[in-house]
Design a protein around this nucleic acid. Structure first.
Length: 507
RNA sequence: GCUCGUGUAGUGUAGUGGUCCAUCAUGAAGCCCUCUCGAGGCUUCGACCCGGGUUCAAAUCCCGGCACGAGCACCA
């Protein structure tokens, strides 16, 4: 219309019909998380429910960050719940409970408000299971998995569905006493065999498991499945908002049917899509566990792994991770992002906190000659170029023997950073000027007197690259993250008389 | 196959009827600054899946395609 009759006409029309539209401001990007539906300040209860079969990974970080951030916004609570009800397929790892609590705290800077373990709350689940049977909301099914699947796909009821509560109870007793082998019976929630979505038809709630549980041993023969345990526990904890992966949408639907039986109100539910990080292939916690046991990785903090412990070890900053996840926000899209993006967040977080040091890879010795232009044998350098970290590094130039990187030798004339212009010939360097006189390349260098052997470990895909070199031996403190000038950020893993060990962070 | 979900620059993300020739970040290219290949500043590049419909007006609402993903485990 604006094209046909001119913008003024549109303006006039809007004036009469929709004056607010004229006052619209230029779009601004909304920052932070969007509002939680039906949330009242002080009354929000969220939960983060990992399986303790390993420490937290980058993928878990999304759940931790989003839940924790919402609880901060709404002054609510986060329940850290260990969903450890499978002792067979994904057996819990004893240390993982502690690790996950550590990882959670590292990432959010605080402890969860409540911590519970499903395996310690079995009595509650068994109680509700019995209630389910007593009230006829469910039944014990002794059909084989295959047989039930077939019936289900044809919308046929299985014969066990007709059993009365007395029969169900006696079957139940057989189950919990361990009289039945694994796979011989299961407790199902009665839904409707004509439901359009076959996944929802009389879904299984509890099954027999005779494999001893890592934490509670062989005390229980019947264990709840996730959909049941989680549903009961959310109710018990008064969870108001569930934020979960969209692969669990059918779980929500199943659980709503269960809540209907009990007459409970189901929490608000939000979903996120799948996140893939380019640089990490497909890692699963159980897969990593196996690889570590086979010593293909040094441990859960092997720098090639996408665990929070590995990223922490390399020097990733928890606030940077948080910024990254909040920037992604809560969407149902399946996305694929690059580690580079996380690194960009990290750089901006850590640059002002990282002191500079020199690390010369593949060092090549050069003897400087200052006959024509005598120089002072001492150099004072900032710890940080913008002086964001106060203090200096004092370099003793000794007899003017220095190291530069092999690749920098190809240039005939170079500028030794913060020092002098030189001309190289046959491993000798003639000092031409202290002032910078032209645009020649600036290279980093190191006087032999303060050089110590150093090795930089770089995780690259599934490989480990070890780069040897010489590093400036001044105030080397373990665990510090430094920026190796012209190389990148690295964490100092250890330092002794002979060697400094560095672990690569990013460029 | 059945069920469900999602489609905005290379990658993410904001925007749910109107100054939207669409936000921000990241990325790429270039410039400035800095005695680092870092940090900071600036400029440029680059997108509403497709086709209909409703409407004065559609990224936004409706219908139909298409593409991608997930669930259909006695795993979580």
């Amino acid at each position: 219309m604006a094209q046909d009759k001119g913008i003024e006409e549109v303006r006039e029309l809007l004036e009469s019909t929709n004056p607010e539209a004229l006052n619209r401001q230029k779009q601004v990007k909304r920052t932070g998380l969007k509002e939680l539906p039906n949330a009242k300040k002080g009354e929000v209860v969220l939960r983060f429910a990992p399986n303790p079969n390993g420490p937290l990974t980058l993928g878990h970080a999304r759940g931790v960050t989003i839940n924790s951030e919402y609880s901060k916004i709404y002054e609510g609570k986060v329940v850290l719940r260990f969903d450890d009800t499978d002792s067979k397929v994904k057996p819990p790892l004893e240390e993982a409970y502690k690790w996950i609590e550590e990882d959670y705290k590292w990432l959010t800077g605080r402890d969860p408000d409540i911590i519970i373990r499903a395996s310690e709350r079995m009595e509650i689940y068994l109680k509700y299971a019995r209630e389910l049977l007593d009230n006829g909301f469910g039944y014990v099914c002794k059909c084989s998995a295959e047989k039930f699947k077939k019936l289900r796909d044809e919308s046929e009821e299985c014969p066990c569905r007709k059993n009365d509560s007395k029969k169900n109870l006696s079957d139940w007793n057989e189950m919990i006493k361990g009289e039945l082998d694994e796979g011989m019976a299961v407790v199902r929630v009665k839904t409707d065999m004509n439901l359009p979505n076959p996944a929802l038809r009389d879904w299984p709630a509890l099954r027999i498991q005779h494999t001893p549980h890592t934490m509670v041993g062989d005390k229980y023969k019947v264990w709840p499945l996730l959909d049941f345990q989680s549903a009961i526990e959310d109710h018990e904890q008064g969870v108001t908002h569930i934020i979960r992966g969209k692969d669990l949408m059918d779980s929500t639907r199943k659980q709503k049917l269960l809540y209907k039986h009990f007459g409970w109100k189901y929490p608000e539910t939000l979903y996120w899509g799948r996140v893939k990080i380019y640089e990490y292939g497909s890692f699963s916690t159980s897969g990593m566990r196996k690889e570590i046991e086979n010593t293909n990785y040094s441990g859960w903090d092997d720098p090639r792994l996408p665990t929070l412990r590995a990223l922490r070890r390399r020097g990733f900053n928890p606030d940077a991770m948080k910024d990254f996840w909040l920037d992604l926000g809560l969407t149902q899209k399946d996305i694929s992002v690059s580690l580079q993006t996380i690194e960009a967040f990290n750089s901006s977080k850590i640059d002002s906190m990282c002191e500079r040091r020199t690390f010369v890879r593949n060092p090549h010795k050069i003897q400087l000659n200052d006959e024509n232009l005598p120089v002072e044998r001492k150099l004072v350098l900032n710890k940080h170029p913008l002086n964001e970290i106060k203090g200096y590094r004092e370099w003793d130039l000794g007899n003017l023997e220095i190291f530069i990187e092999e690749k920098d030798i190809d240039n005939e004339q170079i500028r030794l950073k913060d020092f002098a212009d030189i001309k190289i010939k046959d491993s000798k360097g003639i000092i031409q000027s202290i002032e910078r006189t032209d645009k020649r390349q600036i290279v980093h260098w190191l006087p032999k007197t303060i050089a110590k052997k150093a090795v930089l470990t770089i995780p690259k895909g599934n490989e480990i690259i070890v780069q040897e070199g010489m590093m400036e031996d001044i105030q080397i403190m373990e665990n510090n993250i430094v920026q190796l000038e012209r190389v990148g950020y690295a964490r100092i893993e250890s330092s002794n008389e002979e060697v400094i060990k560095l672990l690569w962070l990013h460029g």
